[in-house]
Simulated scan of single mutants.
Amino acid sequence: MYEPSCMDNDSCNNDQRAFRSLFARNLKLTGLVASDVDDDLTKWLESSAKAAAQSCSGGTDGITCGQDWNHDGWDSKYGLANLATFASN
C-alpha cells in the first residue's frame, strides 16, 4: 500500500500514516462479507503486510518501522507507531 497524496513529498501527517492500517482492516472485513473477492483481497493484503514488515529493520534498535513499504528495508522515516513512541520520550 502506498499513500500518494503525501509520501512522494514526505508530508504525511499522523492521519495519513494511519490510513493504510485502517484501510487494510476494512478490506479484510469486506472480504469476510463478500466471499467472492476474499481470496484476491487476502493475497493483496498479505503482500502488503510482508512489505510493511520488511520496513521494520532500522533505527538504533534495528527493528524500527519505516513509512514507505515499497522501499527495500527501513527508509529512515519513522512510521506511525514509532512517532508515538518518539514523541513521548
Score class of each variant (00 low, 15 high):
M1T: 10
M1Y: 10
Y2P: 01
E3C: 04
E3W: 06
P4R: 03
C6W: 01
M7L: 08
M7P: 00
D8T: 06
N9D: 05
D10R: 14
S11V: 06
N13Q: 03
N14K: 12
D15R: 09
D15S: 12
Q16M: 12
R17I: 06
R17M: 14
A18N: 08
F19L: 09
R20I: 15
R20E: 01
S21D: 07
S21H: 13
F23G: 05
F23M: 11
R25H: 12
N26L: 14
L27M: 15
T30R: 12
G31K: 13
G31C: 10
A34F: 15
S35F: 08
D36M: 13
D36G: 10
V37Q: 07
D40E: 14
K43I: 11
W44I: 10
L45A: 02
L45R: 06
E46Q: 12
S47V: 07
K50R: 09
A52Q: 08
A53I: 07
A53M: 05
Q54P: 00
S55N: 03
C56V: 04
C56K: 05
G58R: 03
T60L: 11
G62T: 00
G62K: 07
I63S: 06
T64L: 00
C65V: 02
C65E: 00
Q67I: 06
W69D: 00
D72Q: 10
D72A: 12
G73A: 02
D75N: 07
D75I: 05
S76W: 10
G79H: 05
L80T: 02
L80V: 08
L80M: 09
A81R: 14
A81Q: 14
N82I: 08
N82L: 08
N82D: 10
L83D: 03
T85K: 14
F86L: 14
